[in-house]
């Protein structure tokens, strides 16, 4: 249950950015989370109110945009979809692949009321 730690880090960043922009309320927080980030979106959503209580983000809506899992094959050059425990090339089946997306743990966007 490290999602609470992640949420506390998120709220710290959000509060900082809200202050820099002289905002009194944060309305929407948008995150990009990939399946290999090690963070479970549903747990993040349930931990968020605890971390945000008493801050400018207390009433914010948390929007999580899941990211696709895609790999680039170093052997045949193809870009294909993959699953978290099968990151093989979808065309030739080789395991010499690089992750193109899927491990994101990013704060993407804030909607602030100033």
């Amino acid at each position: 249950m490290h999602e609470l730690s992640v949420c506390q880090a998120l709220v710290n960043q959000v509060v900082e950015i809200a202050q820099q922009n002289s905002a009194h309320t944060v309305r929407v927080i948008t995150l990009h989370i990939g399946p290999l980030s090690g963070v479970e979106p549903a747990l993040l959503v349930s931990a968020f109110p605890l971390a945000a209580a008493g801050t400018v983000a207390a009433s914010a809506q948390l929007v999580i945009e899941p990211q696709p899992l895609r790999v680039h094959c170093q052997t045949c050059g193809a870009d294909t979809e993959a699953t978290p425990n099968r990151l093989l090339c979808g065309i030739c089946g080789d395991y010499h692949t690089q992750l193109l997306s899927g491990d994101e743990l990013l704060l993407a966007n804030l909607e602030l009321i100033t």
Binding site: V6, A9, Q13, N21, L107, E111, L112, T114
Partner: peptide
Amino acid sequence: PGNRHLAYKPVNGGTSAVSVLKKLLAHN
């Protein structure tokens, strides 16, 4: 470094959207 990427997009009166793209665990 995330501060450099702050961008303002007015949504409606009194509201603004800030695009950040910042790692959630940046402090760690």
